[in-house]
Design a protein around this nucleic acid. Structure first.
Lengths: 222, 222
DNA sequence: GGGAACTTACTGACAGCGTAGTAACCTCCG
DNA sequence: CGGAGGTTACTACGCTGTCAGTAAGTTCCC
């Protein structure tokens, strides 16, 4: 039984209001960053004062964490089985996500700004993003290993790097795309990067970077 | 001609002082971002008041632009010929840069934070980063085309995407590395990504991502 | 059903701090 | 002297968070 007696709140109307606030907060944090995004601007978007926002979320830090959590939840919501796929389907899912992201620059900007901002001193979202990347790297690495196994290829030692590289390319492309949407194709370029990494994992051959002067290249470690 | 209206006469002692301020500003912007990095903290590091900093740079915005410009200058300074190399040497240069960056997390953090922050509304560094990425993409694309030509390969239409992907991977890896330096190898992973992209450009074959499901069914597990 | 007891969802005022920029002044050094 | 390199003092904000108060629910008991 759900023991709701102790917490008689959570009216549907209230939940909708909070969702509104979360949406507004996402917009403001995207446009101005967390540090420079004032509560008053968020409150104004939903027609209340900043004190009203604080009533719902207690503090600005908690609001930020709710924004991030809420986004993760709704992202997984419309997924088959509510689970992230595995193997090559995960990689395809990443490409589809990039494609979907082209239609929602606000979300992309929020995450691009907040993830980078989170590396600053004592940022409230730092644990969130640290853990998030850890999880995502694990999922991509697992997917790559599954693909390798399916093709009878020994997963090389580089799968860890490959996983990090896939996520890094997607993130970096978002920043470039936000700065110059007419010059950078977000989805197509993300797909290209993922394909390149996947190919590199599947057949690990000597790199063209190290060919040429390989005798000197091996000894080189400045 | 050099129109240094701001500095009619520049004593060497003064130039050194300004360099100090620029270094301090880099540290503060790295640690707290531009928007949240106060002039007082910068001033304190060099032993003066915030008004003294403003005396030298006029405004906080101008200080930021000087920081960015100064970093670009000193980066090119210790380069042979003071010019960015071309062809495969540019790609090797990128890897060497990533290696050097592992020893200066402050610089890395400053650029990671500021580049992402620059996409926010009316950010003073936005034109700088927009132009910076445009230039860098052009340089990497040219380098890739040179490598293709050297090997008698027609540069594929994907060179543009490849150039963006290389820079994106490097940037994205910096964020992951800053968040978890023990889990992400900055230089090695950057090299991996660059190699993967280079290989993809050099022999463009059908992507494993698009192969659909013809090889499905075999259980070739060990 | 109706009213008392309580909770929720706010508002408006304000404290308290941090911040960029300005203006006037001081103080060396060439 | 005259100006470069500051300082102190001050203005004018902008921001988060607290507090008391109010109006509108909700719950419970008879």
């Amino acid at each position: 039984m759900t023991d709701d007696r102790r917490t008689p709140r959570a009216r549907p109307e209230t939940l909708a209001r909070r969702a509104e606030i979360l949406r507004a907060a996402t917009a403001t944090f995207a446009a101005r960053g967390y540090g420079k995004g004032p509560l008053t601007e968020i409150a104004e978007q939903v027609g209340m004062t900043h004190a009203g926002v604080l009533h719902h979320f207690g503090s600005k830090d908690r609001l930020l964490l709710e924004v991030l959590r809420h986004r993760d939840e709704t992202d997984v919501e419309h997924l088959p089985d509510r689970r992230v796929p595995d193997g090559i389907e995960l990689l395809r899912h990443l490409v589809r996500t990039a494609l979907a992201n082209e239609r929602r620059p606000g979300i992309v900007q929020a995450f691009a700004v907040l993830s980078a901002e989170s590396v600053t001193d004592d940022h409230p979202a730092r644990p969130f993003f640290t853990e998030r990347y850890r999880t995502l790297r694990g999922q991509v690495r697992a997917a790559l290993e599954v693909v390798c196994a399916e093709r009878g290829v020994d997963a090389p030692a580089t799968v860890d790097r490959a996983a990090a590289a896939v996520l890094a390319a997607m993130d970096g492309l978002q920043v470039q795309w936000l700065l110059a949407p007419d010059e950078v194709e977000l989805a197509e370029t993300s797909a290209f990067a993922i394909e390149a990494v996947l190919t590199a994992v599947l057949d690990s051959r000597p790199s063209p970077l190290r060919e040429e002067s390989d005798a000197a290249g091996d000894a080189e470690r400045p």
